[in-house]
């Protein structure tokens, strides 16, 4: 049973958060911060697949987030709300309650397909050169969106509030919070399963020695494709949720700056450490909010922290280790893959 302890703990925590937000016991600001924590957990843990487990250097994660955000938002507006451009809703707005996860998933799938833009070049190149390609893909996505006037171009795209509104009219619960919590739990769970299976460990073999991996039976091209698509797909889902939290998105939110933020979280938590990614996403988001009074100086303090970290602990807080390796007691409570068999 211990293998379910983690799940039960997460479910209980989620229920408490949901109860508190539903009863308005915590204010909207804290609710949004909690949702951003969830989004950042998805982003950092999914980027960790590439930068940590597979050992490539992707610095265009925000680009995939943008694809997911726009696809989900546009689908939602087209299907469930009346909009200047897309006209009257295609489906009854109330059906958004059921179909919201479908549009979210569609955003994820679109982002996964965009991930092919990086995955295919990764067959022939790696390291610094692939990093430049990821950077280019980030720019391609951002500039493409800026130039498509139907979805608002550089001015941005809005109206998602209407969809959330129509969901609340059916049943008055904090819908976006619910989906953020579900998606966060699911993606961490899926990544955990992926990197702990012999199949998923193929990407770690690619990191350690790509030539040996290919010669010793790992289909490196397929594994790279799987890793990039899984990672960018989850980023797309994070993007779709991000759009629905804010109710407004513009290409400016998905620049290299955002990608860097995600990268900082990954390196802070430790490469190849899932629990590190989760912890650092929580810590980083809270820190960002705590440092808000510093205004622009925040962007001096945070990079400074990064410099200190790189000097004294370059592998991150939990480099290539999990929380349960540092505190073996956790294993008894939550069990591990090896312990569970």
């Amino acid at each position: 049973m211990q293998r379910y302890n983690g799940f039960i703990l997460f479910a209980l925590g989620s229920l408490i958060v949901l109860g508190l937000s539903h009863g308005n016991l915590i204010n909207a600001y804290i609710q949004i911060t909690i949702m951003f924590i969830g989004i950042n957990i998805i982003l950092s843990s999914s980027l960790n697949i590439i930068n940590g487990y597979m050992g490539e250097f992707s610095c265009g994660h925000a680009g995939f987030m943008a694809v997911g955000a726009y696809v989900t938002s546009v689908l939602n507006m087209w299907l469930f709300a009346s909009d200047r451009v897309f006209g009257p809703p295609l489906l009854p707005p109330a059906s958004a309650v059921l179909l919201f996860p479908v549009t979210l998933l569609a955003g994820g799938i679109a982002a996964a397909l965009a991930g092919l833009l990086v995955a295919v070049p990764s067959f022939r190149t790696r390291g610094d050169y692939l990093a430049i390609i990821t950077l280019a893909v980030n720019y391609i996505v951002k500039s493409s969106i800026e130039n498509i006037q139907v979805i608002g171009g550089a001015r941005g795209f809005m109206g998602m509030r209407k969809v959330v509104q129509s969901m609340s009219e059916v049943l008055d619960v904090p819908w976006v919070m619910i989906w953020v919590l579900i998606a966060t739990g699911l993606s961490v769970w899926l990544i955990y399963r992926f990197v702990n299976s012999t199949y998923g460990k193929g990407i770690v073999a690619i990191r350690d020695d790509e030539i040996a991996a290919e010669i010793m039976s790992v289909n490196t091209q397929r594994m790279k494709m799987v890793a990039f698509m899984l990672s960018s797909g989850l980023a797309g889902i994070a993007g779709g949720l991000f759009a629905n939290i804010l109710g407004y998105i513009n290409p400016g939110s998905f620049t290299i700056m955002k990608s860097t933020e995600v990268m900082v979280m990954v390196y802070l938590g430790g490469m190849g450490s899932l629990s590190g990614s989760v912890l650092s996403a929580v810590g980083f988001t809270v820190l960002m909010e705590v440092l808000r009074p510093l205004q622009l100086f925040k962007w001096v303090v945070i990079p400074l922290l990064l410099i200190v970290l790189m000097l004294f602990r370059p592998e991150g807080i939990l480099g290539n280790r999990e929380l349960s390796d540092v505190f073996p007691r956790l294993k008894r409570w939550f069990g591990t893959e090896q312990g569970g068999k």
Binding site: K201, V204, A205, D208, D209, A213, V218, G272
Partner: peptide
């Protein structure tokens, strides 16, 4: 060998 993976994992992968 894949040096950051255990001997056991090496033989699984």
């Amino acid at each position: 060998l894949w040096n950051e993976l255990s001997v056991f994992d090496n033989l699984c992968i």
